[in-house]
Write a protein that binds this DNA or RNA. Sequence first.
DNA 1: GCCAAAAGTGGCAGAGACTGACAGATTAGA
DNA 2: TCTAATCTGTCAGTCTCTGCCACTTTTGGC
Lengths: 198, 198
Amino acid sequence: MSDFTRPGGTRAIARDAVRARISEVAVDLFDEHGFDNVTVEQIAAAVGVSPRSVHRYFPAKEDTVIGDPAGWGEHVRDQLVARPSDEPIWDALLASYEALLATPGRNETQGKKAMRVLGTTPALRARNLEKHLLWARMLTPVVTERLDGDDRTLRAETIVQASLACFDIALTTWAEANSSDSALELLRRSFGALQPTA
Amino acid sequence: MSDFTRPGGTRAIARDAVRARISEVAVDLFDEHGFDNVTVEQIAAAVGVSPRSVHRYFPAKEDTVIGDPAGWGEHVRDQLVARPSDEPIWDALLASYEALLATPGRNETQGKKAMRVLGTTPALRARNLEKHLLWARMLTPVVTERLDGDDRTLRAETIVQASLACFDIALTTWAEANSSDSALELLRRSFGALQPTA
DNA sequence: GCCAAAAGTGGCAGAGACTGACAGATTAGA
DNA sequence: TCTAATCTGTCAGTCTCTGCCACTTTTGGC
């Protein structure tokens, strides 16, 4: 086993499992009663842990829905770095987001429910936007390097934020019940709306 | 004087003055000590009112910096509606934001300080982006009407959010100390970053 | 299998944001 | 001047979130 042991080991597995369980229960409760009508104490009771432990896994109540922003942000950034440098920036960004959507670890039903809850509560939307700001800080330097000419930073920030808006709109639309399109398809269309001439 | 009396009268004037005063004091304190290191109680004491009254004027502590989102959003929407219908959508949006920046009522120094504070605290940035979501809900229907073809709503949402991102980036960059460009100029450049072919 | 070190957990106390209810003060308008 | 609407402060309370300490469980070396 020792050659198999990675930083963390079984402990990390247990931790991830508890974390996922809390998130699942919380989203279910929020979906049924509304975010503001569910207390951390109730979530803790439903899971079978103390309120103190819930706050240990998630710094803020909102994070039970959002998850770990930094992790996925790094994922997108790594994808972007790996794209060929002569590829148009918008194509590279689209491909990077697509890779994130294709990640197998994501539970479709649970993810959709989380997005739905997210859309109904201002506090959650705000926290989600904070995640986007974190992503933007990671992606902007990479995009800046791909640009030429004046105002590289300003233009990079604009492009990154606009692409994140596309990503957000695609997922939000996808979470709505009547939408039969895949998130991937919606993402492509949203990107297309910013490049009418391409 | 009676012919001068508008709905609200002197009471509304006093109310607006108190509101402005609280906001001003709060921003100053945040700028000096950091948003998280200033309590509502301290703001109240500095102004000379009770903490309860601060919460009466501003539902959340963050709102002391952000101000009234709905009002300015309506302003932008009205501007947009007034634009000629054959004008390209991006030009119309740019002109609408420019009109907002040109509004005389805005205090330059205080506004810049508020934007600076806003940029240093994630919670504030997020709350500010929530304001943008409110604006988006107002602007999207107007933009949708100007579009033809498929996916009008999705495309309208994308365009509106992207333009709001430009607006945010322009103001944030403008608030940074080393920037000598006007907010208007930055806004134009940010818009330009999304239309390389135009 | 045993034992120290590390990590996880729960309970407690407390700060801080925010809300509802009530009573007193202030002001607008008849 | 008088009445009614409005404003304000005080109080009590809920909820989120954090540090602290004691206790239990797990890990890794012997």
